[in-house]
């Protein structure tokens, strides 16, 4: 970084063929116009997720008409219950003009909304072979992540906690394993409800954060969006700064405790 100062402009990351600077991605869960505005203007998002099933609407509920042209659209396959349905939704999104990126969401449980890793791998393989930039939402499992890499994913998107829960990094230890072993971008999706949680994830070294509910349910959306931006940047800076070791027990003296010993 120039002059040892952190600069978002110089800290880019790659997602398939895209070079991006913002490490905040707006999720699609709770769509509101003021949320889009806050995400763009305050959080400076470059990618906005939209559910193809909502883009499929002809009326004012159609998200497409509210997103500026220079922003990258990330259609997702929410509503899909298996790989076949996800692929069909992804193709429909492309036909609707949503581009080649797709976030795979496959859920076979309407209660917990957890991703189906097995079907996600199958869909990733099919869609990657059709030229999609595939961003799979997944439960953080190393073997699955490796299979997704092999299947052609452009990144992996482990959940931090159940969708919409705002409970933060409940899967932290498993995300850390993905960071240790997976060379693709790791984007934490779902569960990040507070800027401090986003900061914590970025400190670990994740590439980007996808969030929605944390901002959408705030009383002041622009403030919360701005807070996410600052937290993500702070976490990123801390990661680049390589944090000092945190001890689980006891303390580490700044001067050696045994320095009084003589070499005899």
């Amino acid at each position: 970084m120039k002059d040892n100062l952190y600069s978002v402009a110089q800290d880019s990351w790659q997602l398939g063929p895209l070079t991006l600077h913002s490490r905040f991605i707006l999720g699609s869960g709770k769509f509101r116009l003021d949320l889009i505005e806050a995400a763009l203007n305050q959080a400076e998002a470059e990618i906005i997720t939209l559910a193809v099933r909502r883009a499929n609407s002809a009326g004012e509920g159609n998200i497409l008409q509210h997103i500026p042209e220079h922003i990258h659209l990330l259609p997702n396959t929410s509503g899909a219950r298996n790989a076949e349905e996800a692929c069909r939704i992804a193709r429909l999104g492309r036909e609707l003009g949503c581009g080649d990126m797709v976030k795979i969401e496959i859920m076979r449980d309407s209660k917990y909304l957890l991703p189906d890793n097995y079907e996600t791998i199958k869909a990733t393989e099919i869609l990657a072979s059709e030229g999609f930039i595939v961003m799979p939402y997944m439960y953080p499992d190393l073997n699955v992540a490796r299979d997704l890499v092999t299947a052609g994913a452009a990144c992996v998107m482990p959940l931090g906690a159940p969708i919409g829960s705002n409970r933060g990094l409940e899967t932290k230890a498993f995300i850390q394993i993905l960071l240790n072993e997976i060379d693709l971008p790791v984007i934490v999706d779902a569960g990040i409800g507070k800027p401090s949680q986003a900061c914590e994830a970025m400190e670990m070294g994740v590439t980007a954060i996808m969030a929605n509910t944390g901002i959408a349910t705030a009383s002041n959306l622009p403030y919360m969006a701005a807070a996410f931006k600052k937290a993500i940047e702070a976490g990123r800076m801390a990661y680049l700064a390589k944090p000092g070791r945190v001890l689980e027990h006891g303390a580490e003296a700044s001067s050696p405790l045994t320095g009084f010993l003589r070499n005899e």
Binding site: V52, R53, R54, S57, A58, G59, G61, G79, A80, L92
Partner: peptide, 11 residues
């Protein structure tokens, strides 16, 4: 509130 006419794709 936000009126939504459709949030579904027949697959």
């Amino acid at each position: 509130m936000q009126p939504v006419m459709n949030d579904y794709i027949y697959v």
